[in-house]
């Protein structure tokens, strides 16, 4: 049983009279413990694919199963639940809440999972220490560097012990040295058994993965091992 399985998944948007096929028949399997990179130029449909895999959206047609949940036509609440419990998401722009400190940002998924406050805080602090922010618990994102922000985001993605960790250009906003460190964190997490999926247009990022899928015009063009 694959962790993720997509069968002939299509996604199209309507812009005015025009129908735009962002994904045009994608079939894909991701197994437990994989380190996958999805690459492609902008407009290729890789972001749409990422949104589907990240349970932020549902396909127009085709079958999509993630962690045993059939999400082909799931409700918004069902998606939210899967997002909350099975998936960790790391964004290019960090997407932290500026008014909350490090611990509160990290514990956010636990809030929506209904974890009691004391337990929430304990786990958030534990994770913060694990991503190397033990000294920065009470700081707000504005007081942190980009690399530290992305660590908070990784911490937030990990706090609910998800089965898959997604990264959408996670190094895009970072200088190369910091980006390198963040990538190393993803590799380390993968070595510890976490399934990691990165979306990028940077070949260097793709190079650290174990499998690369190249996507273009809404279809998978190529699949290779770097």
């Amino acid at each position: 049983m694959s962790l993720v399985s997509l069968e002939d998944v299509r996604k199209s948007y309507r812009v005015g009279d025009q129908e735009i096929r962002a994904l045009d028949g994608v079939s894909l399997r991701i197994e437990e413990g994989e380190f996958l990179a999805i690459i492609g130029p902008s407009g290729s449909g890789k972001s749409t694919l990422m949104h589907l895999l990240g349970c932020l959206d549902t396909p127009t047609s085709g079958r999509m199963e993630i962690c045993g949940h059939d999400l082909s036509s799931a409700s918004a609440d069902k998606l939210a639940e899967v997002r909350n419990r099975e998936i960790g998401f790391v964004f290019q722009a960090f997407n932290l809440l500026p008014k909350l400190d490090v611990v509160r940002n990290i514990e956010l998924p636990l809030v929506y999972a209904g974890v009691p406050p004391a337990e929430r805080r304990r786990r958030a602090i534990e994770v913060a220490k694990a991503v190397g922010l033990g000294e920065r618990l009470g700081n707000r994102p504005t007081q942190l560097s980009g690399g530290q922000c992305q660590r908070v985001a990784i911490g937030r993605a990990l706090v609910n012990r998800p089965r898959i960790l997604f990264g959408d250009e996670p190094t895009g906003n970072l200088d190369s040295a910091t980006g390198e460190m963040i990538l190393e964190m993803f590799r380390q997490l993968n070595r510890e058994g976490k399934t990691v999926v990165l979306v990028t247009h940077d070949p260097d990022v793709a190079a650290v993965s174990k499998r690369v899928i190249e996507i273009k015009d809404g279809r998978i063009r190529r699949e290779y091992v770097p």
């Binding site: 918004a76 939210a80 997002r83 909350n84 964004f91 809440l97 929506y112």
Partner: peptide
């Protein structure tokens, strides 16, 4: 809007 988007992304439901 962005804050709400972030909350939704980490698993908040519409009713939250």
């Amino acid at each position: 809007v962005r804050e709400i988007g972030i909350r939704l992304a980490v698993g908040a439901k519409g009713r939250d």
